[in-house]
């Protein structure tokens, strides 16, 4: 340590300490929740984002082309499965329509308020193109090509075709940063736990997706009541309780369930539905605005 001081010299050491203090101040300032980005940040993000957008798309096409060749054989099987899924879909669609109409009639009969009606509305999905990826283990994030000009706001959920991916963490005019669910952390002031439930058992099951275990590559779901019917293989979806977060976004499948650390509630490990790699198109879920 002494040799390090000698090497650095008095003036250098002074500058180093000043720099350290400055940087810790900047980090502390930018760590907490912020109202929005300042214009220099927005400007840099949008300029860099534009260049990244130009680069990312052709590269994804080229690598995607080679991947497609490799996947050619499994294509036929996938096609068959999709046909079966489509048949199921057309059958369910008729059922869905009648239930939907019943639902509307009942909500009119019961005189739902506008707010209650808005809560039952479908969400709007906006297609976003990923333009760059940072795999920093403590701060995994993506940049997408939609910004505040497209109506994106902080905290909106982002999904892929398979399941929930993350939430929008910072928005500039034409791009925004998506914080992946792998950074979920109960100690982080910016990360909120997601209220979750089981598909097909929405009224009986409840738990909170609180953190991501990067050793296992799974989410940890906590606060599950001991008489909860949740079991292995169940599909976990977001419940939308609490209002802000959209309902019924697929999160993953239950792998195991065990007693929690205090024994009062259970915890479960959830395998994510998305793979968190090779990003292409994502969907930003826009929740309908509730008229005040």
């Amino acid at each position: 340590m002494l040799t390090l001081f000698k090497l650095l010299g008095n003036k250098r050491l002074f500058f180093l300490l000043m720099g350290l203090i400055l940087f810790i101040a900047v980090m502390g300032f930018t760590l907490g929740p912020r109202a929005g980005l300042s214009w220099p940040e927005k400007f840099t993000k949008d300029t860099v984002g534009f260049v990244q957008y130009i680069v990312y798309k052709p590269v994804s096409y080229i690598t995607g082309f080679f991947e497609d060749i490799a996947n050619l054989r499994s294509l036929q099987k996938e096609n068959e499965e999709l046909k079966i899924a489509l048949a199921h879909y057309t059958r369910d669609k008729a059922r869905y329509n009648s239930i939907e109409q019943d639902n509307e009639r009942y909500s009119n009969l019961l005189k739902f308020t506008d707010e209650q009606k808005a809560r039952n509305k479908d969400y709007e999905y906006r297609i976003a193109q990923v333009i760059s990826v940072s795999n920093d283990p403590d701060n995994r994030s993506l940049v997408i090509n939609l910004g505040s000009q497209n109506g994106i706001k902080n905290g909106m959920a982002v999904t892929s075709d398979k399941g929930l991916v993350g939430t929008v963490s910072h928005v500039s005019n034409f791009t925004s940063t998506v914080k992946l669910l792998t950074t979920l952390d109960p100690k982080d002031p910016n990360s909120n736990a997601i209220a979750a439930t089981v598909q097909g058992n929405e009224n009986k099951s409840f738990g909170m997706i609180e953190s991501f275990d990067s050793d296992k590559g799974m989410f940890l779901m906590t606060k599950i009541k001991s008489d909860d019917p949740l079991k292995e293989g169940d599909t976990i979806i977001s419940s939308g309780l609490g209002g802000e977060f959209p309902r019924f976004m697929v999160i993953g499948k239950v792998v195991s369930r065990q007693k929690g650390s205090y024994g009062l509630t259970d915890t479960a490990y959830i395998e994510p539905a998305t793979e968190f790699s090779d990003w292409n198109e994502l969907f930003v879920v826009i929740t309908p605005e509730v008229p005040q």
Partner: peptide
């Protein structure tokens, strides 16, 4: 700083400090 701002997830500063220093 560019890295910090473009991939702004948690905070600004770690990369700037680490890379410069």
């Amino acid at each position: 700083l560019l890295q910090d701002v473009v991939y702004y997830g948690a905070m600004i500063g770690p990369y700037s400090f680490g890379m410069g220093f």
